[in-house]
Simulated assay, not measured.
Amino acid sequence: MNMKGWFTEMARNKRNSGSVIILSVIVIVLVAGFFMYKSGVFGGKEKQKITVYSIFQEEEARKILDKFKAETGIDYDILRLPSGEAVSRIQNEMSNPQADFLMGGPADSHQVLKEAGSLEAYVSPNASDIADNMKDKEGHWTGFYLNPVAIGINENRWKEKYGDAPYPQSFKELTDPKFKGEIGMSDPATSGTAYTAVASLAQVWGDDEMLNYMKELLPNLKERPKSGIEPIQKAAKGEYTIGITFLGDQLKIKYQGNPITSIVPEAAGYEVGALSIVKNGPNTEAAKKLMDYMLTKEPGEIYTQSAYAVSVKDSVPIPEGGIDIKSTNYNASYDLLKAAAQRKDLQSALKDLK
């Protein structure tokens, strides 16, 4: 190679080396920028997804989760389940959890999961203003709303069947033979609504009297669906006269234009609707963010206005058309931890009733 060719080759190699260096720098900058974006340095939102098992009605849960997604960039999958099925599913999945978050359902259901070792302990800083009896002190579950059990009556069907007779004001009146086939109540084995009702009766009357009462009530039940809201939905359609459900569900159906009257009788239990994080779920950090968000004012207002429940937070007002639980005859001494401890035994005894 002559001298001119040698200089030409050297120049070409320098250009190639320079190109490699420039390309390497570009790659390093892009990779660093990507990780800085993911970490939020540039205000970016990490692409994540959370799996939620919801005992809330799905439309209510989605309203909240859509807001959460817009605020955090965290997407979600949702599976709507009755509380009994949600508890069983989470326990059965303990060796390989599929969900990150359990949304709604009576706190005694969450307590059962806590005792089974299925829940993550997390005390949200936003839970500090929630009363101690409405949250687990170790943070395994946190209360979100209050809702008493009520007797819901289709006014039109009542008029057709019973004329001007007064509405029943107590649970015991529902055993009257004239109500045969005219009452809907969900199955306490699958529904937190029905379990709350019978657990409260057991606490007020004693286990034996509650079981005798349920045996007398059974002939009057048209059906025992899995989901707690179904009895009032079907009563509203005129399939039967009375639905035993949570008050909030009845008010929601009423304000959709249905002729429903609600009575909260003595001995009526209530749910502290709760939230919890599934232990060892696929995305625990995102679940903690969801818990923090749920305990702010916005989701509290979204839920109470949609479900006509009462928030556990004083900062969230009672929704228009809602009823303050303190103004009813509910069982204020209802012990949800005792209800959780008795759950297996009471459900077993109720299954034996014919």
Rank of each mutant, 00 (worst) to 15 (best):
L79S: 13
M291C: 07
Y303S: 13
T241M: 04
S83I: 01
K254C: 06
I64P: 00
Q305A: 15
I277N: 00
S128G: 04
D108P: 02
A116D: 07
K178W: 05
V149G: 03
G238M: 12
L217M: 03
G163D: 04
E320A: 10
D345S: 14
N126R: 13
I21H: 04
S227H: 11
A197K: 03
A286G: 08
M214C: 12
G192K: 07
M36T: 11
K67A: 15
P319N: 06
E71K: 15
E160I: 13
Y255A: 15
L275I: 12
I244F: 02
I50R: 01
K178N: 01
E239M: 09
L146I: 09
G273L: 14
G43M: 05
G40Y: 10
D324F: 13
K137D: 14
D176M: 03
V20F: 15
L211C: 04
I153D: 04
L102T: 00
G40K: 08
E93Y: 09
Q256E: 13
L290N: 05
K226Q: 12
S109T: 10
D132G: 07
S276L: 09
F144Y: 12
T296Y: 00
I21M: 11
Q347K: 15
Q347T: 15
I50H: 03
A309K: 05
V31Q: 09
R12F: 11
A199K: 00
K326Q: 14
I318E: 11
G181P: 02
A165S: 14
S118I: 02
P177N: 06
P125R: 02
K114N: 04
S24R: 00
I302Y: 03
S333E: 13
E182N: 09
D187N: 15
V278I: 10
D314Q: 13
I263W: 01
S54R: 00
L211M: 10
E155W: 06
V272G: 01
A131E: 10
L336F: 07
R15H: 08
K326E: 14
V29M: 11
K297Q: 09
V25W: 05
D108M: 11
S348A: 15
A287Y: 02
A340H: 03
P125F: 01
A235N: 02
E93P: 00
K344M: 12
S227R: 08
I64H: 05
L65P: 08
R224H: 10
T72S: 13
G269D: 03
R343F: 09
A107F: 08
D136Q: 06
A199W: 02
G206F: 10
A99S: 15
A202F: 05
N2V: 13
M3N: 15
I232P: 00
K159G: 11
T51Y: 14
E298Y: 09
E58W: 11
K14M: 14
